[in-house]
Structure formats: structure tokens, C-alpha cells
Write a protein that binds this DNA or RNA. Structure first.
Length: 499
RNA sequence: GACUCAUUAGCUCAGCUGGUAGAGCACCUGACUCUUAAUCAGGGCGUCCAGGGUUCGAAUCCCUGAUGGGUCACCA
């Protein structure tokens, strides 16, 4: 034997587990039983339907189809479980029922193969509702082995990359995504029932506005124009309010070119809701009522357990001003500071806040809030009246022009909603864009870009309006007790695998 | 981005102070017509993440890199 032959034999042995299945497929094809030519299989029932209606179906004929997930042979008979969308179902296959030829072929089927089975509904001696096969058809040959049957697929990386395998072997994953769909449907239902109009605004933007974030850049060839994937849809929705749609919302993907973590994915789903002739108080009510409604509808309760902590989502939620929180936690009354210098002097002992000498009074209050207060907000809480310096799109509070009529909702120390009375003074808005522009020139890539057309819209006239954004993935994390955003995204963003 | 842990069979994992790579499941062969982690007997399966170094000898020690997890930082 030459080295080359030796090597190729080793190669073959290496992949024996794969070759065996390919051989089986080849044999079937040579016999004229190529499963990949089959285009349909008529099933009369889903697995769950038979389980739920056994009394009516016992003794009757039914057909089901699905993937073989376990198999137990006993010589001239055997049991197997097949899995369809609704669950697992046992089949009982006997040589004297389906014939010698057919039975011999059945014994070659592997875990992962997809089959159709027609047979009689019955209950085994051990009590399991099953199907006694009259015929078994191979519908798809699986050429790769499934993960091990009771440890399953655990490697998180593989689970995300090969979600299709994850879904097959970890049924509870399916439940999370079924729940995700229900949650999204119920959010829409809540708003549709109150005559909010769902709209679609551009994802490809020439100005990435509506939030402080780094955008993804892409390129339009015909226009030879760099474009941004949207970081928010706020400015478009407010244009629609200007146009006379008094209640609008949009739920969809946002894209932010920033870090990834258990609560950040580069593309994520958010909803923004705008309503004319109302203020931030109304948006606070919508937030707590919407979350309460969705929890009740999807989970049947407003009490959730997240990571071992009981959380009550029932409205009304607690309301507290940001400044009071910071003052109570740090013992420093920043509102007493008359200017930035005084605020910096007050903050000088707060070592956790970086670059204090570059921050304004409002930014210091916000930083102190994030550093010292956020994590304590376990039960749903609205934090009110953010400084104007960190709220370039929010209306000022008439009693104190340094703060805004804005709120953020926190659950388990995480922000899940943000809303405010929308700034509709075009002159003030322009000033704030200009100061954002200045920050941008100083290197803040996340500062707002100037949006002249949005200013134009405000000059046409935006009625008093309340606006609100909710992080849908984070809401879903709470309602499904998921600890990573990747667990609520079917295909989370992954680096490409290097082979 | 920083720190830290991990990467061994298709899957889940063991492998001690350096001495020829292990188990279970899955797969193959045989027995078995009510099993369900089926059972019983036998068998095959490895780029020990990659590259370099130390050593007579490296899955094991050292360095560099890749990928992933966790923690922290920024962002929702």
C-alpha cells in the first residue's frame, strides 16, 4: 500500500459516521427509492392532535410525519419517536404489518431522518399513545448525526450558529420563539385596539437621526451615495405627526454599530409610538399598560420571575425623579449647582465618573444616575425629568428649564423604555442640533447629525406630542426569563466561523 | 476594548506532577415482535483549536494567534 492510499483510507475511516449515511442513501437511490424526489406527504394529524383526541381516534387510521428522534429495535419489531412541530409521538413498526422488504429498509433509518407514517392509533401495554404502522416512508435522509440524545447540544456558539439543530434537540428553545411571536402580536394588538396606525419608515437613511449611536454605513451604487442603516425611526414618525397622523407606531429592526453583550445585538427590534395632543404622562401610562397587557395575555400573569427575582409588572409603576434618586443615593444636591463649574466641584469625589471636567452639569447628573442608581431599580420604575443636556429631542419642563419632561422605564436595573414630551419648538431644536454638531466635531461619533428637513417639518408645525420607544428584545427577555439577548434572537449576529 | 476561563471522537465530557488518547450516547455487526436513557454480545471512529518553543518524549509546560463563554467598560 502506498502512502497515498493509506492516507485516503484514513480519510475515509475518519468520516465513517458520515459515509455510512451517504452509502445508505446511495443504496436507496439505486433501488429507485430516492427520498429526495418525494414532493409531498399527506398527513392527517399533528402529533398533539392525536394525543389530545385519543378517545375519538383509538382504532382509527392516521398519518403523521416528522423527524426520527429516538429508535429502539427488537428484532422483527421496533419503536421510535418522531418529532413534528407540536411534539413527539411514538410509532410501533412490525415486520408482519409493513412487510419484510419495507421493514428491512426501516431498520436502516437513522436518527434525524424524516419519515411519514400511516397506521392505527392505539395505546401500548405501558400506556403510551402510539401509531401501529401500516406503512413507513422515508421523506428525507439526514446525512449528519444529531447531537447526543440526553445531553443534547450545549455549546452556546454552535447553538446560535446552527439554530436549526438547536431547535430540533432543545424543544424549550422553540417555546421561547413561539412566545416571542405572541408577545409581538400582543403589542400590536394593544395599539391597534386603540387606533394607532402602524407605519413603515425607511431603514436606509441619508441622515442617521433620532438617537445617540454609531450607525452602520452602506452604499447605494446608482446614486453613488453612502447611506446609514437607521439607528431609530423617531424623526420620521414625528414627521408623520406633522402630516396629520395623530397616532402612529412602528416596530422593527434598528441597527447600531456598537459593542455586543448579553443585552446588545447590532440589530435589534424596537417599537416607537407617537401620539399628538398628549404629553409624557400619557406615554408613561401606555408603557405600563402595554407591558401589563402583554404579560397577562401571553403569560396569564403580571408576576414574573427573572433570574430568581420576583417582579410585578402590574400598573401603575413607581415614579421617581432622576435628580431625587441621585441626591438620595449620593447625598449631593446637584440642582443647587448654578453652573457646570459648581457641578464639577460637587462631583469631584465621585471617582467612578470619568472625565468630570469635560461634562456639563446635566451630564454629571445623568452619569451619577447611571453609576449609582440604575442597578437598584429592580421593580418597574419610571425615572423622570432627565437633564436637557442629555435629551436633545425632549421638551423642557416649564417649571425648570434645565430638565425635560422625559422618562425612562427600568426593570431589573435595565432600561426598557424611553419617552418624552416631544420638543416641537423648531428654533430650540435647531440650537440643540447645533450643540450636538459641536460635540460631533469634538469627536463624539454618537452625537446627532443636523437634520434640516426635520427642522423644516417642525417649522410647518408639530402639535404637542408624546413619544415613546420600547426595547422589544429586552421585554421578551423578561417575559421568557432569558439571560442573553441571543436567546431571544433566532439568528443572533455572529462572527463568521474561520475554517 | 480589558481581564479571565475554555477549546480532546458526530454530541456530552474525563484525561493527575510530561511517558503510545478514554467513557457514555451516536454509528457498524449479531440476538431479540410492547420498548421508551430498551437490553445483551462484539467492533470501528481522533489535525487533542492553529503555529512556534522547551524536552529523549507534549493533549499536558511556555509563547503567539483564532474562536467561544463569563466579568467589566460604551451603547437600548
Amino acid at each position: 500500500m502506498t502512502n497515498e492510499e493509506n492516507h485516503s483510507m484514513e480519510e475515509q475511516e475518519l468520516r465513517e459516521i458520515l459515509l455510512v449515511r451517504r452509502e445508505k442513501l446511495k443504496e436507496l437511490q439505486e433501488k429507485g427509492n430516492n427520498p429526495f424526489t418525494i414532493e409531498q406527504y399527506i398527513r392527517t394529524h399533528m402529533s398533539k392532535e392525536i394525543l389530545d383526541n385519543f378517545e375519538n381516534l383509538e382504532g382509527k387510521t392516521a398519518s403523521i410525519a416528522g423527524r426520527i428522534v429516538s429508535k429502539r429495535g427488537h428484532g422483527k419489531a421496533g419503536f421510535a419517536h418522531i418529532q413534528d412541530m407540536e411534539g413527539r409521538f411514538q410509532i410501533y413498526v412490525r415486520q408482519d404489518q409493513i412487510g419484510e422488504e419495507s421493514y428491512k429498509e426501516y431498520t436502516t433509518y437513522d436518527l434525524g431522518d424524516i419519515i411519514g407514517v400511516e397506521g392505527e392509533v392505539f395505546r401500548t401495554k405501558k400506556g403510551e399513545i402510539s401509531l401501529k404502522a401500516h406503512s413507513v416512508v422515508l421523506l428525507t435522509k439526514s446525512l449528519q448525526p444529531l447531537p447526543e440524545k440526553w445531553h443534547g447540544l450545549k455549546d452556546p456558539d454552535l447553538r446560535y450558529r446552527q439554530r436549526y439543530v438547536d431547535l430540533i434537540v432543545n424543544p424549550e428553545v422553540k417555546d421561547v420563539f413561539i412566545k416571542r411571536t405572541k408577545i409581538i402580536r400582543k403589542v400590536r394588538e394593544f395599539l391597534d385596539n386603540q387606533d394607532y396606525l402602524e407605519v413603515e419608515t425607511p431603514i436606509l437613511n441619508t441622515i442617521a437621526g433620532g438617537a445617540n449611536a454609531k450607525p452602520f454605513i452602506t452604499h447605494h451604487n446608482t446614486l453613488d451615495l453612502d447611506m446609514y442603516l437607521r439607528i431609530a425611526n423617531e424623526l420620521f414618525l414625528k414627521r408623520l405627526i406633522v402630516g396629520g397622523f395623530d397616532r402612529v407606531y412602528e416596530m422593527g429592526k434598528m441597527f447600531r454599530n456598537e459593542g455586543m453583550s448579553y443585552k446588545h445585538n447590532p440589530e435589534y427590534t424596537a417599537i416607537e409610538i407617537y401620539e399628538a395632543y398628549t404629553d409624557y404622562n400619557r406615554m408613561i401610562e401606555i408603557t405600563e399598560n402595554l407591558v401589563e397587557y402583554v404579560a397577562k395575555e401571553v403569560l396569564g400573569t403580571t408576576k414574573i420571575n427573572y433570574d430568581g427575582v420576583e417582579i410585578e409588572l402590574k400598573a401603575p409603576w413607581k415614579r421617581v425623579s432622576m435628580h431625587d434618586l441621585v441626591r438620595d443615593k449620593t447625598g449631593i444636591d446637584f440642582m443647587a449647582a448654578k453652573n457646570n463649574e459648581e457641578a464639577r466641584a460637587l462631583a469631584k469625589d465621585l471617582k467612578q465618573i470619568e472625565n468630570i471636567d469635560k461634562l456639563t452639569k446635566g451630564e454629571i447628573i445623568n452619569a451619577a444616575f447611571e453609576e449609582f442608581c440604575e442597578e437598584d431599580l429592580i421593580q418597574p420604575t419610571f425615572v423622570l425629568h432627565h437633564p436637557v443636556d442629555v435629551s436633545p429631542l425632549a421638551k423642557r419642563n416649564p417649571d425648570n428649564l434645565e430638565i425635560t419632561n422625559r422618562f425612562e422605564a427600568f426593570i431589573y436595573g435595565r432600561e426598557i423604555a424611553n419617552g418624552f414630551s416631544e420638543l416641537n419648538d423648531p428654533i430650540d431644536q435647531k440650537q440643540r442640533f447645533l450643540s450636538q454638531l459641536k460635540a460631533r466635531e469634538l469627536g463624539d461619533e454618537e452625537a446627532h447629525m443636523m437634520d434640516e428637513d426635520f427642522i423644516n417639518a417642525l417649522e410647518i408645525g408639530l402639535p404637542p406630542t408624546g413619544g415613546l420607544g420600547i426595547g422589544i428584545d429586552r421585554l421578551i427577555m423578561f417575559l421568557t426569563n432569558s439571560h442573553s439577548i441571543r436567546d431571544v434572537l433566532l439568528f443572533p449576529t455572529m462572527k463568521p466561523e474561520i475554517k
